[in-house]
Amino acid sequence: MTSMKGFFRGRAKIQPIWVFVIALFIFFSVMSEYFLSFGNISNILVQTSTIGLIALGMTFVMINGNIDLSVGAILGLSASLAVGLQAISMTLAILAALVSGILLGALNGFVVWKTGVNAFIVTLGAMLGVRGLIFLYTGEQSFFAMNFAFADFGTSTIGPVPVLAIIFLICALIMHLVLTRTSHGRNTFAVGGNPEASIDAGIRLGRHMMINFIIVGFFAALAGVLLASQMGAATPNLGRDYELWVITAVVLGGTKLTGGYGSIVGTLGGVLAIGILRNGMNLMQVPAFYVLVILGAILISVLIIDKKLNAPSAKEVRI
């Protein structure tokens, strides 16, 4: 058995974001009498599970040195499929939704790999195109879930714990292990850290890139299904701006946009930081627009602090 310390050591040191998360937690516990309760905490986990699930996949893509802007659109398409196809079969609808995410991820990855066009551009195109597909498919209509099992699932609990929170935490654990313990995880870091050296070491770049795009595509689709289930409906605009929230969470968690560095533990912190802030300020009845301003300011300040903390001081001493 691995000790707890060894388990959390992972690749990166304890992320500064966790200090921030704890500070926020204490702050809101003091400021609002409603914050510190089991119900509210599980509420936060449910609220963040959608962005959180996608962020898990995005962490892989970003460590790999890429980015995926199409996740919001994939989420929207998946949600529409999961609800829209229920007339035929519930299982088929969910399967189709998940497969659509996997295929779109694979397509993103394949184009980036084979053409060498920057992932930002490729997935920007995918973001526009997939959103167009949603409108084509739905005819600008919202779909409502007729299947009660589906609509109930998103709000169900096991014991006192919401199912969505459990799914999110289990996925986070699995992805943490994949990232830190498997050769795919290691190679993801290597390719992001130095693609040329990775080629020299015989690592198949394209394969790992594609797998990571598939992972994020799958998680976006899964998040779409769960979100539709939670709302009992799917709207064509579902998932707009989600890519920005996801990237914000991942970057807050210490993953570098340039690749080669990051962790699931950090991403979890980033996701929770956003979730706690939104929830806490909501409880304190801060108007929603201020919440956005504050989140933006926090994103930038956290990165400035991170930069100061990790200034190259050890570099001067060469062994």
Partner: peptide, 13 residues
């Protein structure tokens, strides 16, 4: 540095 090593990774990796 450009082709042989992942500079941000540790020695073992």
């Amino acid at each position: 540095k450009d082709q042989g090593l992942i500079l941000g990774m540790n020695c073992r990796d």
